[in-house]
Simulated scan of single mutants.
Amino acid sequence: MAVTIAAPITGTVVPLTGVPDPVFAKALVGPGAAIDPGEGATLTVTAPVSGKLTSLKPHAFVISHRPDQGVLVHLGIDTVHLGGAGFTLRAEAGQQVEAGDEIIVWDLAAARQAEKSVVVPVVVLEADVEDLSVAEAGPIDAGDSLIRIG
Rank of each mutant, 00 (worst) to 15 (best):
G70K: 14
G11T: 09
I9N: 14
V71P: 06
G84S: 08
Q95A: 10
T4I: 03
G38D: 10
V45R: 15
A33Y: 01
P15C: 06
S145F: 08
Q95G: 09
R148I: 04
D36L: 05
H59F: 11
E115M: 13
V120W: 13
T79K: 04
S117W: 10
E92F: 15
P31R: 09
I147V: 11
P8E: 13
G138T: 04
S117H: 09
G150M: 08
V123Y: 01
Q69G: 07
V71G: 08
K57V: 07
L132E: 03
S50R: 14
E136K: 12
P15I: 01
L108R: 05
D131T: 09
R112W: 08
A33T: 04
T44W: 11
Q113C: 05
L28D: 01
A142E: 09
D107P: 00
Q96F: 10
P67I: 04
D141N: 15
V19M: 00
A137H: 04
S145W: 09
L56S: 10
P139E: 04
V19D: 01
G11V: 04
F61C: 03
H65R: 08
P58L: 05
H74M: 14
G83K: 12
V80G: 08
M1D: 05
Q113V: 09
A85F: 02
G70P: 13
E115H: 15
T42K: 07
S117N: 12
G84A: 12
D131V: 11
V23Q: 06
V49W: 10
L72I: 09
G38S: 14
E136W: 02
T54Q: 11
E102M: 06
A60P: 05
G30Y: 07
P121D: 06
H65P: 00
G11Q: 15
L146P: 15
V105M: 00
A114P: 00
P15W: 01
G83D: 13
L132N: 09
L53I: 10
Q96T: 14
A85V: 03
H81A: 13
V118G: 03
F87C: 03
T17N: 03
P37Y: 11
A135K: 13
Q95N: 14
G138D: 05
